[in-house]
């Protein structure tokens, strides 16, 4: 068994004190393409955000290559949902990709030639080299998504978190993304992808995390992506778990 890239222990996450993820425990070995699958409101995005320190954990911990997230920032690449940014922002495609290198630069240092090269290379990689000078509003949805991917590539991370990269993209972009993900895996990176389309899970991924407020299963696709597990994942919400979460929200006025 190879090294563990990503590990979550006993993690509970609450929004406004209402738990949305209960006691998650999972381990992802290095070099896997991982699909995070579950119904709406199952906490898929929350899992990623918690892993990246964007939301507070109510309990438990997250480890990246055995260390806390803060120590391993430089190993992490993140692709947020496309709607999360303002596409009227006055930046060009290349500027956005260049942002991927900021983390490595740290405070005060400005991107130089080397960073520009990385940015251009990443753009070429996703087939967007010709668009470097465009303002980002002028891109199609699929192209915007590719720019985000190029930015993640420019982060030169070991482990990537992608939040619904396939949402609202054209078929060509979708297959380009898949190709890219496979390349990343070949070069030993670990990629976690929030995914919606059950049809394609077994084609795209080799590992899968099934979520519905709690972890249903986590493991290689062949063993884990079974009808039985899917039934558990999508077979309605656990009403009592829901009600209990609601009770907690009501009775804990401050935290």
């Amino acid at each position: 068994m190879s090294q563990t890239a990503f590990e979550v222990h006993d993690m509970t996450v609450a929004y406004h004190r209402r738990p949305v993820l209960w006691d998650i425990d999972l381990e992802i070995p290095e070099g896997k393409l991982v699909g995070i699958v579950g119904p709406n409101g199952a906490g898929k995005t929350t899992l990623i955000k918690a892993a990246l320190g964007l939301v507070q954990l109510a309990s438990g911990k997250v480890e990246i290559y055995g260390k806390s997230y803060e120590e391993q920032r430089h190993l992490i690449g993140y692709v947020p949902q496309r709607e999360s940014v303002d596409w009227d922002f006055p930046v060009t495609v290349r500027d956005v990709v260049l942002m991927g290198t900021y983390g490595r630069l740290g405070w005060f240092r400005r991107p130089g030639k080397a960073e520009l090269e990385i940015a251009d290379r990443s753009l070429q990689h996703v087939g967007m080299g010709a668009f470097a000078k465009r303002q980002i509003r002028q891109l199609s949805g699929g192209q915007q998504q590719r720019v985000f991917l190029a930015r993640a590539l420019a982060q030169e991370a070991q482990i990537y978190f992608l939040d619904e990269p396939f949402a609202g993209v054209d078929a060509a972009t979708e297959s380009a993304i898949v190709e890219l993900l496979e390349e990343l895996r070949t070069s030993g990176k670990t990629v976690l992808v929030v995914h919606h389309d059950l049809q394609t899970v077994s084609d795209y991924f080799d590992y899968v995390i099934l979520l519905n407020m709690r972890l249903i299963a986590c493991g290689p696709v062949e063993e884990t992506f079974t009808n039985e597990n899917l039934q558990k994942t999508y077979g309605g919400r656990l009403t009592i778990l829901d009600e209990a979460a609601e009770a907690i929200r009501r009775s804990k006025p401050l935290q």
């Binding site: 320190g53 964007l54 940014v85 930046v91 500027d95 900021y102 405070w107």
Partner: peptide
Amino acid sequence: IMLWKELKLSAFDPALATTMGF
């Protein structure tokens, strides 16, 4: 001048800025 890239990134994509440590 000093914090150009930090200001730009955190205005454009605060979540990414936070994950990068800014």
